[in-house]
Amino acid sequence: MPAWRNTGSDYDPHAHGWDLDPDEYDAELVREAQQWTWWKRVKAAGIRQSWLMPDPYVGASSDVPLDRALDNRERSSDRNTYRKALKEIRDANYRDIDAWAHSGHEALARADAVTGSSPTARRRRSAAIMEALGFYQTGVAVGELSLPSRFTGALLWSSTENRPFHRARHGLALAWWRLGDFDKAATALKTSLWINPDDNQGLREHLPLVEARIPYEKVVVDFGD
Rank of each mutant, 00 (worst) to 15 (best):
P13K: 03
W18G: 05
D19E: 14
D21V: 10
D21C: 08
D23N: 15
E24S: 10
D26W: 10
A27Y: 02
R31A: 15
E32D: 13
Q34M: 08
Q34F: 01
W36D: 13
V42A: 13
I47R: 14
R48A: 12
R48W: 06
L52C: 05
Y57H: 12
Y57S: 08
D67M: 08
E74N: 10
E74K: 15
S76H: 09
S77E: 10
N80P: 00
T81H: 03
Y82V: 08
A85T: 05
Y94R: 04
I97N: 00
I97Q: 00
D98Q: 15
D98V: 01
A101E: 04
E106M: 14
L108P: 03
A109V: 07
G116Q: 03
P119L: 11
T120D: 12
R122I: 14
A127G: 02
A128P: 01
A128R: 04
I129A: 06
M130A: 11
Y136K: 07
G139C: 04
G139M: 03
A141Y: 02
G143Y: 01
E144V: 01
S146L: 02
P148E: 07
L155C: 06
L156W: 04
S158P: 00
E161V: 01
R167D: 11
R169K: 15
A173T: 07
L174I: 14
W176N: 13
R178M: 13
R178K: 14
G180T: 06
D181E: 13
D183S: 12
T187R: 15
S192K: 03
W194S: 14
H206L: 14
E211L: 14
R213I: 01
V219L: 14
F223R: 07
